[in-house]
């Protein structure tokens, strides 16, 4: 399972979400977390059709299974990813 975190430096909610993403990574080393800066990786943002950030996408075997836009605390993030 993999978690993609689409963000940008100028996005306030993305900055607020960052510590939660880092906590999640620490608590769940079994899940690969990839943070995608949409300014630097435009193609990837386009590939996933990201239209609002922060945007979290869960991949299973490389396929998207879920996505959510906006900030959430750790407990909700864990529930969303399903761990």
């Amino acid at each position: 399972m993999e978690l993609l975190d689409f963000y940008a430096d100028w996005c306030g909610p993305c900055q607020m979400l960052k510590p939660t993403i880092e906590e999640f990574e620490k608590a769940h080393p079994e899940i690969k977390v990839t943070s995608v800066n949409i300014d630097e990786e435009e193609e990837l943002a386009e590939k996933y059709g990201v239209s609002s950030i922060p945007c979290l996408v869960v991949l299973k075997d490389g396929e998207e299974v879920k996505r959510e836009v906006g900030v959430m605390p750790l407990k909700k993030l864990e529930k969303f990813v399903g761990v």
């Binding site: 940008a8 996005c11 306030g12 909610p13 949409i38 300014d39 239209s51 609002s52 950030i53 922060p54």
Partner: peptide
């Protein structure tokens, strides 16, 4: 079409 409630978040897209 995407609907956004935050221009400073999503404008640059």
């Amino acid at each position: 079409r995407p609907v956004s409630y935050c221009a400073t978040c999503d404008g640059a897209l």
